[in-house]
Write a protein that binds this DNA or RNA. Structure first.
Length: 217
DNA sequence: TCATTAACACGGG
DNA sequence: CCCGTGTTAATGA
């Protein structure tokens, strides 16, 4: 009956992409993992033995440097998987990124041996793996562009928009310091830019939270 | 010019 | 009181 539950969740997130036989196999071998905001799902240098498929909720992928601090790369949402885990699973390599739960949600953990088996047997799985690499590469480029070409005010705006989207809320519970960490800048800058955005009526500031007034899309 | 670091006052929980 | 916030002054890239 637990399998039944997993099957349903996998169907919800991946039903339009995989054939029924593959969905069944997934449900049979998957380990369901529930997570809460802030949980560290994968840490840097960790070996990955099971591949996670995101069923619900959102996960943020962070890059970290011991000297330079951390930096948000991108968010994962339902139906996504992380290209890093694909590479790590197949290559027995260590993770170069950290995955932290942004919201609560659930993961289906697939044994590595199964994924290799499916690569040969299911076309839809091969497509999924390639598509995932593609999507993550695109998002990576967006992160690089943001770093290289956008000023901090633009990066902050893009960050708030993404954050509101994955959380499905106009009100973000976060401090200026937390934002500064994720964008790898100082709180002074974040506070100043946020204040300017509030004066432009784009947002409203409260203690521990930010209300988004501009339209999301 | 714009970011960072340090320092300080304010105030809400 | 503690912590998040808003600001300034000094310094650096």
């Amino acid at each position: 009956m637990d399998t039944e539950l997993v099957r349903n969740q996998i169907q919800m997130a991946y039903g339009d992409r995989f054939e029924a036989a593959l969905l069944d196999e997934m449900a049979a071998t998957a380990l369901l993992v529930q997570f809460s905001p802030g949980d560290v799902l994968i840490d840097i240098h960790q070996y990955i033995r099971r591949m996670p498929l995101l069923l619900s909720g959102a996960i943020k992928i962070m890059r970290e440097d011991p000297d330079e601090g951390e930096l948000l790369l991108y968010f994962l949402e339902r139906g996504d998987t992380c290209a890093m885990t694909l590479a790590c699973c197949m290559g027995e390599a260590q993770s170069e990124v950290r995955a932290i739960a942004e919201t609560s949600g659930a993961l289906a953990m697939i044994p590595v041996s199964k994924m290799e088996n499916w690569l040969g047997r299911y076309k839809s799985w091969r497509h999924f793996v390639f598509e995932s690499y593609n999507k993550r590469l695109t998002e990576m480029l967006a992160a690089v562009d943001s770093l290289a070409f956008l000023k901090m005010d633009q990066r902050l705006l893009a960050y708030l928009r993404e954050k509101a989207k994955v959380n499905g809320s106009q009100v973000l519970t976060i401090t200026h310091q937390d934002i500064a960490y994720e964008l790898n800048t100082s709180r002074v800058v974040v506070s100043r830019l946020l204040k300017a955005m509030e004066n432009d009526n784009q947002i409203r500031l409260h203690r521990n939270s930010i209300e988004i007034l501009f339209a999301l899309n």
